[in-house]
Design a binder for these strands. Structure first.
Lengths: 358, 358
DNA sequence: AAACACATTGTGTCCGCACACATTTTTTAT
DNA sequence: ATAAAAAATGTGTGCGGACACAATGTGTTT
């Protein structure tokens, strides 16, 4: 049994293909009676359009904008960028163009400026990492009014229903970190939670990671065995950063673990290296080169992979699926919480990430 | 600038589209001179065929056979089967049909019988899990003679170059297990390697996993701190299975870890449950329901995910990519060594993570 | 009843490619 | 030199869908 075509439906309904087409696209100019008959037949025959034929016939062009951090300020953004570009390349032959608007991830003003640029381009869809909560809200409203669908990634924001959110369950990643620490030291331990280099008030996901970790111990009735110390650190002033760490580790000699909620675990590793500290284990996020360096040296025990490349890729992919192929897409797409260590690292880098999962 | 079409190349080369087409498909009947000219232009203009138009235009039907284990004998095979079926469904509209041939994974004769069935169907391609090394070799030869391309998955066999191999690096997964054990007990420990329910002589991957584990400790100069005990166990006779375990744990009271190289970690967990043993940590393979039960209870610490669903999916996908879309495909596709624990489990089983492709 | 507006339905072409078939050019045989 | 065979090249159609446009049909106005 072959696939049902518009022709087949037209034949069964004793109308022409054009009429069926009008019904399919709800373009009107079809009598109620015929419309219902056709609709019923479509239902019965379980018609599914041939997406390739559809894409082939249409010459509509789609223009998407990706609003992401600029890798020149933070190398983390190399991966999302690469993922976006890969998706853009694949979608090019379907008439999709993607413009990158890259902001300074440390500067809200820059974000606003680039978001304005993005708006001015009047794209058919937007993919963005809404790093600055306060600043992004007015844009959400504007895009909604203009009916420009947008997909969020990297940072979850519940409000203002986007077309889709791609990212990780930050809370759950904190739980994973809890497990790794607990498994590494079942008798109990002293843990430093370090939020490095991101404004915590504007970054809900950092708090979620922290909560996930804390709740792991509470839920498992281990909270009296594990002491948790929290620190917000900033690298703008490196001397001060070191000073703060000095003070923390001097006053807490019993510390055995360090959980870094941002991609800056390597900074802690570097500090340990300089101070000849090697008894404190580090769990962090993101497979950026500096982190990998210390992962391979054994200074970092585990990294939780947020698959930034995949996030960028699937972000564009969602836009394409929805707008070009008019497929149903899921409103939220959690990527797996990959536990990465020196031994399985190879399979998480490169663009193998795109193929190896669905 | 739009995509280059055959027409564009034809115009530049001052020939007709038909001639370009002949060159593209190497169908001959083109003079050397013209062929080279066209080839050069194709190169220059960086032509990439429109795959949708290609798939649309051809009415050729493809018939693939998937030769896998029957889930009725071992629930492990549910996942590969599901992955294959998902890929088959997606590929259906390109004229692809997939027939499943499922053998009893504990019975080489059954494998041979089903492999013969598969051959008789004279398919355009075969995806198979070559579980029985000796028995599968003659089929490889036959298929090669018949020019039926085949893709291997699940079990790696180096010889008889298949179109592609999909699976895990078994050796490296042993290394991961080593890391998990070392991290959990840095001072050294006593480890049981359990090969359960598979004939080790016919399953090279079990040995590779073992080697990976052993070498982890050797490479890190820890081999004098970690004592490794090896056991080959069989579940045909459960009483004997228990007896063997009894004897092992009685004579090795210092055991702290158990590394199960097959998907039968839950059998060890069950045994521990019955014997009220809870100080020995288990690392195993495969997210099958029984394993997940004990993972959630905490009896199993980690499972290494072989992503069997993905293996099935990508196996069919490779055949489709190669034969239907005539894409270049990689000869080997290692899937990541996912470290799965209770806390990140959800993201490896939900099929909401089955990303849509376009 | 003719003229017209408007609602409804049908027809044809294009999208890019593959392949069958038609046509032209070149080579070979007589 | 000419016919026949072979090689090289060109042309046309269909795949399934989208959409512009053409062609009906229906009802209203004068």
């Amino acid at each position: 049994m072959k696939n049902i075509r518009i022709k087949d439906i037209a034949a069964k309904a004793k109308v022409s293909a054009g009429t069926v087409d009008r019904v399919l696209h709800d373009r009107g100019n079809v009598s109620e009676k015929v419309k219902e008959r056709i609709l019923k037949i479509i239902e019965e025959m379980n018609y599914e359009p041939n997406l390739m034929a559809r894409a082939l016939g249409t010459k509509k062009e789609y223009h998407f904008v990706a609003l992401i951090g600029d890798p020149r300020y933070d190398a983390y953004w190399l991966d999302p960028k690469a993922g976006i570009q890969k998706a853009a390349k694949e979608a090019r032959q379907y008439g999709v163009k993607v413009t990158l608007c890259m902001f300074n991830p440390y500067d809200a003003t820059s974000f606003v400026k680039k978001a304005e640029e993005a708006s001015k381009l009047n794209p058919d869809g937007i993919l963005l990492a809404p790093m600055f909560y306060r600043e992004v809200l007015p844009f959400f409203e504007a895009w909604k009014k203009q009916e420009i669908p947008f997909v969020l990634f990297n940072t979850q924001i519940a409000e203002f229903d986007p077309l889709s959110y791609i990212g990780q369950d930050s809370y759950q990643s904190g739980q994973v970190a809890g497990k790794l620490i607990h498994y590494g030291q079942p008798q109990g331990s002293s843990i430093l939670i370090a939020h490095i280099d991101e404004e915590i008030s504007n970054s809900a996901h950092l708090t979620k990671k922290e909560q996930g970790l804390r709740n792991y111990f509470i839920q498992n009735n281990l909270d009296h065995q594990y002491e948790i110390i929290k620190a917000e650190l900033n690298l703008r002033n490196y001397a001060m950063f070191v000073e703060q760490l000095d003070s923390i580790f001097e006053s807490n000699p019993q510390l055995q673990f360090c959980f870094v909620t941002t991609s800056k675990a390597f900074e802690i590793a570097k500090y340990f290296e300089q101070k000849f500290i090697n008894h404190i284990r580090i769990v962090g996020y993101d497979l950026i080169p500096q982190n990998l360096h210390y992962l391979n040296k054994g200074a970092i025990s585990f990294l939780i992979n947020q698959n930034p490349l995949g996030q960028g890729y699937w972000g564009i992919n969602q836009l394409v699926s929805h707008l070009v192929f008019k497929k149903e897409i899921s409103a939220i797409k959690f990527l797996p919480l990959d536990i990465v260590t020196k031994e399985n690292l190879n399979y998480y880098i490169e663009d193998s990430m795109l193929y190896n999962r669905f």
